[in-house]
Simulated assay, not measured.
Amino acid sequence: MLSGRRYLLDLSPEQGEMCEEFGDICRSVWNTALEQRREYRRRGAWMNYVPRTRCSGAPPAASSPRETARAKRSSGAKPQAADTATMPT
């Protein structure tokens, strides 16, 4: 059974504007993805994860977490620490 919760936030005017902006951005991304999906289906094509990553320039995804870890080890990539100087407080 699904259940939902509602919360009432007491935001300052600036926080309210920022939340509205975040909502607008999320809605725009969702609508763009939905439009792309509908266009692919209209043409009889199917869009899954791999072609989308290739279009974006990202490397194809590994099929399992183990393969991802193996690829990181073999590439010599080192983990990067978070840059706390640029993080908002």
Rank of each mutant, 00 (worst) to 15 (best):
L9K: 06
P88D: 07
T53N: 11
R43T: 04
E17A: 14
L34M: 06
S12F: 01
T32I: 06
A77R: 06
K78Q: 07
C26R: 12
C26Y: 13
N48F: 14
E17Q: 11
L2T: 11
S64Q: 09
G23S: 13
E14D: 13
R66K: 10
R42D: 03
D10G: 05
M1S: 13
K72W: 03
S3D: 12
G57K: 00
D24Y: 00
L34V: 06
M87D: 02
Y40Q: 07
R66G: 05
A82E: 08
P88I: 10
A85V: 12
R42L: 09
V29S: 03
R27Y: 04
S28K: 02
R41C: 09
R38S: 15
A61E: 12
A62Q: 13
D83T: 13
P13Y: 02
R5G: 01
A81P: 05
W30N: 06
P51Q: 03
L11K: 00
P79G: 02
R27D: 00
A81Y: 09
S74C: 01
D24R: 11
S63H: 09
M1R: 14
G23Y: 01
A77Q: 08
I25C: 02
Y49H: 14
S12Y: 00
C26P: 00
W46Y: 09
N48E: 13
Q15P: 03
M87T: 06
E21A: 15
C55V: 13
K72G: 02
D83I: 15
A61S: 12
L8Q: 15
I25L: 14
S74T: 01
A71Q: 06
S74N: 05
T89L: 11
A85P: 00
A33N: 00
S75T: 01
A58I: 05
T32G: 01
S64K: 11
E39A: 15
G76F: 00
G44D: 04
D83P: 10
R41H: 01
R70V: 06
T68A: 10
G23C: 14
A58L: 14
A71T: 03
N31G: 06
E14R: 10
R6P: 06
S3L: 12
R52A: 08
A77F: 04
Y7G: 02
R54H: 02
G76S: 02
I25K: 02
M47F: 09
T86I: 14
V29T: 02
P51G: 06
P79Q: 02
M18Y: 14
T89F: 05
A45G: 06
R6I: 13
W46T: 12
T32H: 01
E20C: 15
R5A: 08
L34E: 03
D10N: 06
M1Y: 05
A82P: 01
A45V: 09
